[in-house]
C-alpha cells in the first residue's frame, strides 16, 4: 500500500471519529424525543472554547481537562433541554425544529457577542503535537489519540445504553414513551440524560476538533453538526452503533473525495457531503442500517 493511501486512511479515521461522536448524540436525542436537535453541533463549539479557557488558565492538569469538558458538555446539553425544549415537549414536530434552530442561532450569536468573530488559535500540549514516522506515514499523536478515545467512548455509551437501568429506561422511552411512563419510567430523566450524554460527547468532539484543526470560532459547530447529522442518517437514526458507523463512513467518504479527486474539486467537499445526503435520503431514507418506521394514522 502506498504511503499516500495510508495517510488518507488515517485522515478518514480521525474525521470519522469526530463525526461519530457528534452523530451518537443526534441519535440518542432523536431516540427519546423524535427531534433533530439543530443546536447539537454548537455544543462542539462550547466544548472547544471550554477547553481553551481551561488551558489558557494553565493550572488544570491535562489529564483531567477532557473530563471537565465532558462534564461541561453534559451540563450545557441538559441546560438547553430544560430551558428551551422541555416546555414544548409534545408540541408538533415543526415547533420542535424551530425551537432547536432558534437555540442554535442564539448560542452562535451569544458566542459572537462574548467571544468576537475572530478565530482563536488552539494548541494542544506538545506531547500530542509530536509526529511519529511509521514507515512512509507521518502521524500526529493526536491522529491516534482521537480514534482511540472515540472507540473507548463509543464502547462506554453502548454499554451504558445496553446494561444500566437508566440506559434501559432510555431505550424503553425511545420504543414507546407512553408505555414507558406507565411502567414508572421518568420521561424527564431519560430525556435529560440523552441531551446531557449527547452534549458531553459533542463537547469532547469540540476538544478534538480544536486539537486537529488548530483554530476555533463561535460559528465552527453548525456545519460540522449538520454533517454529523448526515452521518446519523447514513447509519440509521436511533441506534448508537449505527450512528458511530455512519460517522466513520462519512469521514472516509469525505476524505476520499478530497484525497482522490483532482485538486480543483477539493473546494466542493461540502457540496459533495450534502449531495450524498440527498441521494441517501432518496434511495434509502431509513439509512443504510436502519429499520423503516411504520406510519399510522
Amino acid at each position: 500500500m502506498s504511503g499516500y493511501l495510508l495517510q488518507q486512511i488515517v485522515n478518514g479515521l480521525t474525521l470519522g471519529s469526530l463525526y461519530a461522536l457528534v452523530a451518537i448524540g443526534f441519535s440518542l436525542i432523536y431516540g427519546v424525543v423524535r427531534l433533530v436537535n439543530f443546536a447539537h453541533g454548537d455544543l462542539m463549539m462550547i466544548g472547544a472554547f471550554l477547553t481553551l479557557a481551561l488551558v489558557a488558565g494553565g493550572e488544570v492538569a491535562w489529564a483531567i481537562v477532557p473530563l471537565i469538558v465532558m462534564a461541561g458538555g453534559f451540563v450545557a446539553g441538559g441546560a438547553i433541554e430544560r430551558l428551551a425544549f422541555k416546555s414544548i415537549r409534545g408540541a408538533p414536530m415543526i415547533t420542535g425544529f424551530i425551537v432547536t434552530l432558534s437555540a442554535s442561532v442564539a448560542i452562535q450569536n451569544l458566542g459572537l457577542m462574548i467571544l468576537g468573530d475572530q478565530p482563536r488559535n488552539f494548541l494542544f500540549p506538545s506531547v500530542f503535537r509530536e509526529r511519529l514516522e511509521i514507515g512512509p506515514v507521518s502521524l500526529g499523536v493526536i491522529d491516534l489519540a482521537i480514534p482511540a478515545a472515540t472507540l473507548l467512548l463509543v464502547a462506554a455509551v453502548v454499554a451504558f445504553v445496553q446494561r444500566t437501568r437508566l440506559g434501559i429506561a432510555m431505550r424503553a422511552v425511545s420504543e414507546n414513551p407512553l408505555a414507558a411512563r406507565l411502567m414508572g419510567i421518568s420521561l424527564d430523566r431519560a430525556v435529560l440524560v440523552a441531551f446531557g450524554l449527547g452534549g458531553a460527547l459533542a463537547a469532547v468532539a469540540g476538544l478534538f476538533w480544536g486539537g486537529k484543526f488548530g483554530q476555533i470560532d463561535p460559528l465552527m459547530g453548525f456545519v460540522p453538526g449538520l454533517k454529523a447529522f448526515v452521518a446519523t442518517i447514513i447509519g440509521g437514526v436511533g441506534s448508537v452503533g449505527g450512528a458511530a458507523l455512519g460517522g466513520y463512513i462519512l469521514g472516509f467518504a469525505e476524505v476520499a473525495f478530497v484525497g482522490f479527486m483532482p485538486a480543483e474539486y477539493a473546494g466542493y467537499r461540502d457540496a459533495f457531503v450534502f449531495g450524498l445526503l440527498i441521494l441517501i435520503l432518496l434511495v434509502r431514507p431509513q439509512g443504510l442500517f436502519g429499520r423503516e418506521e411504520e406510519q399510522r394514522a
Binding site: F97, V230, G267, Y268, D270, L277, I278
Partner: peptide, 20 residues
C-alpha cells in the same frame, strides 16, 4: 421525505448552492 429530513435536506441545499 418526512418533515425533519426535508429541513436538513433544504439546509444542505443552501450549503450546496453556496459551495457551487
Amino acid at each position: 421525505l418526512k418533515v425533519h429530513y426535508l429541513a436538513v435536506a433544504t439546509l444542505g441545499l443552501i450549503i450546496i448552492v453556496e459551495t457551487l
